[in-house]
Design a protein around this nucleic acid. Structure first.
Length: 771
DNA sequence: AGGGCGCGATTTTTT
DNA sequence: ATCGCGCCCT
């Protein structure tokens, strides 16, 4: 064994090391948050290679490109170039890679197109229209979900139609023909030479099921399987894994790593059942279970809170996460009157933490349940001049201008791609209207041909004929260049020849400029794909063709964040997006009933458990500081709503939470002191329930100033006798300072507040020294 | 064919 | 509030 790996192994704790070095037979690693899961996974792969396994015998599956990339990099650091040979990637990308090799077995071209969710929905929309169904009842979204879930449970269209329960559900939803749409959808994808995301899994399963030589080939090839985030796998994914390693004569070298408490994707088919099944499926084959319970991320107050909260869930794998990082600060709770004030208080507290704890912006994240909540925080961070970045929202590859050009490129590689065809056949406008398109589509369906194949022979008016021929010429011109031209050359040609570039450059509005930027960024990205030679997969010759580019990006959702990593910004993101990340300081906001837990999930016990796991994920992102907040009132869907504090707040033991600093900034004479736990009277109408809510007027602070003009001084400089300015209370005089070190309390007499004398914890202080 | 207006819905997200 | 979609009018 290399000295290097030896020294790496020395950095592991005994359980981690056992999980790394027990390489034979089935292994389940239950990995709590911050328990060094990724290290275990990567060292395990490195260890296997050191022990003589060939890199290409190792299959390591993840969910996101990011974690796949990270894993490859880290393996590379231990075993060097050999890391390139490991089959490490996302489920979808690895399976797509196999499917391209084996495509002929299932009647697909090897450069099949991958439909993203938009393509899939749009195809379903077309089918609904063709079948003359009411699209208000048959929603493309709902149907895609039905189809997706059917595939994830290995239900073919034929079996769907025979499944009484599914048919009954469809009937109840007044959509009895979903099975028919599913059938048509499948046929149309195949005709278009396209697979949706689920197909990448489903078709691989089919392939392994039906072609025993292919199955044998991959069974022999992948002697070692490794799966990250196993709690997020669905039935289909586990079925494929079992096919690959669970059979007579198999060594069953499979290692899955996951945390049932962090399963937050049940809504899209993930099932904890897989973890539970894994144990029983491999019970008789020497399964070993390792629990990584030491948390290296967070201080123990945070870990204790997480442990306690999760006990409220009904089922879970028993474990006790612990930390030796010391107790740390207690969890802070911000109670505010409105969502607006919440934004203000959070921004304010960020300033405080930056001063007091010497945090950088990039040490801090604001997490929320729904993306719509980001707005108010953006507003206040801007006011306070704090750099931030909002994650989530529309990704680069979902932008219209980007998808338009890519659609042209997709047609060059696969002109049967129906969704790409529909997208751009008349964009930019070239006189092929809905009527003409319907006719083409109708003919295509009758003859079993694709729209592309029907174009030359369709009987259409002369003007339309001209337009169609012109369009087909554009595609063919690009196709004829494919042999000698690389991806960038074709894209550049197509951008002009299609008229997209001219169209986009003609738009000089603000949004138009943004679109130009995106369009150019896409061209730049294609250029760098052509220029850089960073192909990590073993044995593959750098392939700069357009087909290769499209395969590369089909499974990408965004650009690398490398540009932003260098910038020092506060991160704003949904709790879901925060999974796997960590920050010194976390602000978890909007902790109100119906928001977190979401009203969509809170009615079912399963839904509620998932919300609680989400809460668990959120609080375990914090290394040192955790601040929770809620607002009594917030604008939602255009009107003011009033909800009691989240039940999850009650589930955190009180001694872990800092005594509330409640109405500090509301300017109220009577503090709102219902405590985090006590639900308060709710008034849905917005009229006052006696004493429960001050009206907006009453809540208005006695003093107001523009936060932009407010520059808080470091709290350790505050001393008795000073004149100070407070953002809400205005000008005041410090009469005395009590308490020591971390807990200094200033008594200040404010000119404008009632009562004038207030005691303010300096560690929370937002005071500007005036002299 | 294209623009504009009105209505309705509205978590979370990777691939 | 906001966004997307669909329908209707020009």
């Amino acid at each position: 064994m290399s000295a290097q790996l030896d020294s790496y192994l020395d950095t592991l704790n005994p359980v981690q090391r056992a999980a790394v070095t027990n390489t034979k037979g089935p292994v389940l690693v239950v990995a709590g948050p911050g328990s060094g899961k990724t290290r275990v996974l990567t060292f395990r792969i490195a260890y296997l290679i050191e022990q003589g396994a060939a890199p290409w015998e190792i299959l390591a599956l993840t969910f996101t490109n990011k974690s796949a990339r990270e894993m490859k990099e880290r393996i590379g650091k231990v075993v060097g170039e050999r890391a390139g040979g490991v089959w490490a990637g996302t489920f979808h990308s690895i399976f797509a890679r196999i499917l391209r090799v084996e495509a002929r077995h299932i009647g697909y071209p090897s450069d099949f197109t991958i439909y993203d969710t938009d393509d899939a929905k749009s195809l379903i929309g077309s089918i609904i229209k063709e079948m003359n169904l009411d699209k208000d009842i048959y929603s493309a979204n709902a149907i895609l979900q039905r189809i997706s879930s059917a595939k994830s449970n290995l239900i073919t269209p034929a079996r769907y139609a025979q499944n009484a329960e599914l048919m009954q559900q469809d009937k109840a939803a007044r959509m009895p023909l979903v099975y028919k749409i599913y059938e048509t959808y499948t046929a149309r994808c195949k005709k278009a030479g396209a697979m949706d995301f689920d197909d990448l899994l489903y078709r691989l399963f089919e392939l392994l099921q039906n072609q025993s030589e292919v199955l044998d080939k991959y069974r022999a090839k992948f002697r070692y399987l490794m799966v990250d985030e196993f709690q997020d796998t669905n039935y289909l994914q586990y079925a494929i894994l079992r096919k690959l390693c669970h059979y007579d004569g198999s060594e069953r070298n499979i290692c899955v790593v996951g945390d049932d408490a962090q399963s937050i994707y049940a809504f899209r088919g993930a099932t904890i059942q897989n973890i539970l099944d894994f144990e029983s499926d491999f019970k008789n084959f020497g399964i070993q279970v390792f629990k990584l319970e030491q948390n290296y991320r967070s201080t123990s107050h945070i870990v204790q809170a997480a442990n306690e909260v999760i006990t409220y869930n009904r089922r879970q794998i028993q474990k006790r996460i612990w930390s030796d990082k010391g107790e740390g600060q207690r969890i802070r709770l911000l109670k505010t009157m409105t969502d607006n004030e919440e934004g203000n208080r959070v921004a304010d507290t960020i300033v405080e933490q930056k001063n007091r704890d010497h945090l950088r912006n990039s040490d801090i994240a604001i997490l929320y349940r729904t993306n719509a909540q980001s707005r108010v925080f953006e507003e206040y961070l801007r006011r306070y001049n704090i750099a931030y970045k909002v994650f989530g929202g529309m990704s680069f590859y979902q932008r219209k201008e980007v998808k338009d050009l890519i659609a042209y490129l997709r047609l060059v590689v696969n002109p049967n791609d129906e969704e790409a065809m529909r997208r751009v056949i008349n964009y930019p406008r070239r006189g092929i209207g809905d009527g003409a398109l319907d006719k083409l589509a109708g003919l295509a369906n009758q003859t079993g041909k694709s729209i592309w194949e029907i174009i030359p022979e369709a009987p259409v008016p002369a003007r339309t004929r001209n337009s169609l021929d012109e369009f087909a010429t554009i595609i063919r011109e690009a196709q004829s260049r494919q042999q000698q031209a690389n991806a960038y050359e074709i894209a550049d040609f197509m951008a002009r020849r299609s008229g997209l570039l001219q169209l986009i450059n003609a738009d000089t509005s603000i949004e138009g400029m943004g679109r130009q930027e995106n369009f150019n960024a896409l061209l730049d990205a294609i250029k760098s794909f052509v220029e850089e030679d960073s192909v990590m997969d073993a044995g593959s010759v750098p392939d700069k063709s357009l087909a290769s580019y499209l395969q590369n990006i089909a499974l990408l959702t965004d650009f690398d964040e490398s540009e932003d990593e260098t910038k020092d910004r506060v991160s704003l993101m949904s709790v879901h997006s925060a999974k796997g990340l960590e920050f010194k300081s976390i602000f978890l906001v909007g902790l109100e009933e119906k928001l977190f837990p979401s009203f969509m999930s809170m009615d079912s016990p399963d839904g509620l458990d998932e919300e609680r796991r989400l809460f668990y994920v959120a609080i375990t992102r914090a290394e040192q500081l955790l601040t929770l907040s809620y607002a009594n009132a917030r604008y939602r869907f255009g009107k003011m709503t009033y909800n009691p504090p989240s039940r999850f707040l009650e589930e955190i033991p009180a001694h872990l939470i800092d005594s509330p600093v409640g109405a500090r900034s509301t300017g109220m004479t009577r503090p709102v002191d219902t405590g985090a736990a006590a639900p308060r009277p709710v008034s849905e109408s917005g009229s006052r329930v006696s004493g429960a809510f001050p009206t907006r007027r009453a809540a208005a602070p006695a003093f107001q100033m523009d936060p932009k003009d407010f520059k808080p001084s470091p709290s350790d400089q505050i001393a008795a006798g000073q004149r100070v300015l407070h953002l809400k209370f205005g000008e005041g005089k410090v009469t005395s300072i009590d308490g020591g070190a971390d807990n200094r309390v200033a008594t200040i007499v404010f000119k404008l507040s009632d009562p004038p004398e207030k005691k303010i914890m300096l560690k929370f202080a937002k005071l500007q020294i005036l002299e």
